[in-house]
Computed example of a mutant assay.
Amino acid sequence: MSDSNTTDFTNPSTFILLGIPGQEAAHVWISIPFCTMYAIAILGNFTILCIVRREPSLHEPMYYFLCMLAITDLLVYTSTLPKMLAIFWFNSREIDFSACLTQMYFIRCFSLMESGILVAMAFDRYVDICHPLRHSTILTNPVVAKIGLAVGLRGGMVTLPSLLLVRQWPYCTTNIIPQPFCTHTAVVKLACADTHVNSYYGLFVLFCVMGLDGIFIAISYVQILRAIFSLPTKDARLKTFGTCGSHLCVILASYVPGLFISLMYWFGQNVPGHIHVLIPNLYIFMPHMLNPIIYGVRTKQIRDRLLWFFTHKGA
């Protein structure tokens, strides 16, 4: 191929992010819901972290895992939204090659970390309901810390091979990414190389890592439901099941949009291109905004602490 038809982008210095292609004139308006989600996520997650830190009665495994989830939510927003808003507001589309790969790495890593935390929270609910007398001896603080460390290491190590593969490929056609941030799929499409190994590894991560997480969560709740239905009274069953309500809502908020996106990808050939970009972006950020709201509304201890704070402040 002649030099007049292509530019050598092998290890390019920058990528160009287009935002929402075809909707450049509406970028400022599109930024409003994303900016609102960012503000809610920052406020909600920091509130949960502060409440758990300051309230000794909340120093339990369930709330430690909730803090891990809040930190993950904050990291997802912080690694993506500032650059996304800069594109929408200031048309700042260039992103350094290394920064793009770092952003891509963080998105995948934090998604895997969140999945692992949801498994840990399911395990906590299982032990608390099925083995209540042993809960404090099984989930001690050192064990919780080791679970958190394992979740973080798993997310980082499982994501690392994809980053190394993407970094070594040549980019010889274009450096334009039709997204408001660097996703793994968008970057891989620009590579001028055989990317099948990356596709196979992505399927491995999907089925053998996140798929196993879903199986572990399902097994935990099968055991939880068996224990709940063995309780003698309806009130006891409802009260016990209520302790799982927040976790179940977070799981639905995390997995149901993903199923919708998959259906849109396979059956939405007539959906406009900007919708194919906009909806997945909303899916990435929406669960991380909803998590603190769900736990703040449905968890009595956190709700009571918030009410006490506003009442005490008002007094």
Rank of each mutant, 00 (worst) to 15 (best):
S4Y: 14
T6C: 15
P12I: 03
P12Q: 13
P12D: 11
G22C: 04
A25Y: 04
A25L: 13
I30Y: 01
T36Y: 09
Y38K: 01
I40S: 01
I42H: 09
L43I: 14
I51R: 00
R53G: 09
R53Q: 11
R54M: 13
E55R: 14
H59W: 14
P61H: 02
Y64K: 08
F65V: 05
L66F: 09
C67N: 10
L69N: 06
I71M: 12
S79H: 08
L85S: 02
L85C: 04
I87Y: 11
A99P: 01
C100G: 05
T102Y: 14
Q103C: 10
M104T: 14
M104D: 07
Y105R: 01
E114T: 07
S115P: 02
M121V: 12
L133E: 14
L133Q: 11
H135V: 07
L139V: 03
T140P: 03
K146M: 14
G156P: 07
V158N: 00
T159K: 07
P161D: 05
P161W: 11
V166R: 03
R167F: 12
Q168E: 15
C172K: 09
I177E: 01
P178M: 04
P178I: 02
T183N: 05
T185S: 10
L190G: 00
A193E: 13
T195R: 03
Y200M: 14
C208I: 11
I219T: 08
L225R: 06
L231Y: 05
T233Y: 07
T233S: 13
L238Y: 11
K239E: 12
L252C: 13
A253C: 08
A253E: 06
L259F: 13
F260P: 00
I261K: 03
I261W: 03
L263E: 04
P272A: 09
G273F: 12
R303G: 06
L306Q: 08
F309S: 07
G314H: 14
G314P: 01
